[in-house]
Write a protein that binds this DNA or RNA. Structure first.
Ligand code: FES
Ligand code: FES
Lengths: 145, 145
DNA sequence: GTAATAAAAGATAAAAATATCCTTAATTAA
DNA sequence: TTAATTAAGGATATTTTTATCTTTTATTAC
């Protein structure tokens, strides 16, 4: 559904939301290990997520690391997709036509249009916090690769 | 959702099902133009779809080209995904965990599991023929890029 | 200040996906 | 049998994605 890059981003954000706070920041090594992602590559992704303070925050130096504000935790999962530039994928035509629309639909559209809003809602209605809480409650995990 | 390669494959198969017959085979140039795909790249894809006579058939030489048997037209769209090696994508975990399952679910799973079977059914229940008929009836198209 | 720590930034590297081109083989028609 | 046609097969080329490594900058502790 998404690129590996975005999968790492989602798992990292959920992990940071679950385990980190401004008082207890998480380091790159910790995060990469927890979500089973390549360390240096994850660093690049965390940079993206930090840029402009959109999703997560970071502090350099001893005691530094990554965390996410209570406010940002309320963001929909889709905001992570957006930062990674993959929220457009949710609107894509199944057959690769330029636009997925009623005006010039592909032959999959009639059936797909019933499901598409459900998929989009999946990422709109769930917040980062909700997913983190799921993991904290022991109902799910992000480390089992 | 799928790779460009698979999108081309899907559009090509639908086009062949719609316009071609064993008596009226379609040439590579025709197909590539109709579905707006790069010609030589499309040739490779058509080879894959032809291999083992799984989906489409081909004949070389003058008057040759590609066509699809009446029997193959009844195949579900998923069979095309299968030949392209992307039907596994339908089973993938949204967050990229090794397995999407109830046993070790990711935090998206609880919501996603409601939609996943609908997506799979989309490709299981629709046959190549159904999509081709949709286009023939003027209800949809595969050329509008 | 100096040293240690940790993320940011930059430069490459490796792998996979996408795409093109050239040669070969099969088929047909003349 | 020769020439023309069309897909198959093979070799490369380009682009994008994924990944690693090195240097720089910010922060803290001493
Ligand atoms: S136009 Fe193809 S899925 Fe909507
Ligand atoms: S386990 Fe992640 S979607 Fe099912």
């Amino acid at each position: 559904m998404f690129s590996k890059t975005t999968e790492y981003a989602l798992r990292a954000v959920i992990y940071i939301a679950q385990k980190g706070t401004e008082e207890n920041k998480l380091g790159l090594a910790d995060i990469a290990k927890a979500i089973h992602s390549p360390r240096s590559f994850t660093a690049k992704i965390l940079q993206q997520l930090t840029a402009g303070g959109k999703i997560i925050s970071s502090v350099r130096g001893p005691g530094g690391g990554f965390y996410i504000s209570a406010k940002a935790k309320k963001l929909p999962v889709r905001s992570v997709l957006s930062v990674m530039g993959e929220d457009v994928k949710l609107e894509k035509c199944v057959l690769g036509l330029k636009h997925c629309s009623e005006e010039k639909p592909c032959p999959m559209h009639a059936s797909y249009k019933l499901i598409k809003p459900l998929i989009i809602d999946l990422f709109e209605s769930k917040t980062i916090e909700m997913l983190a809480n799921e993991v904290s409650a022991g109902k799910s995990n992000i480390g089992n690769l």
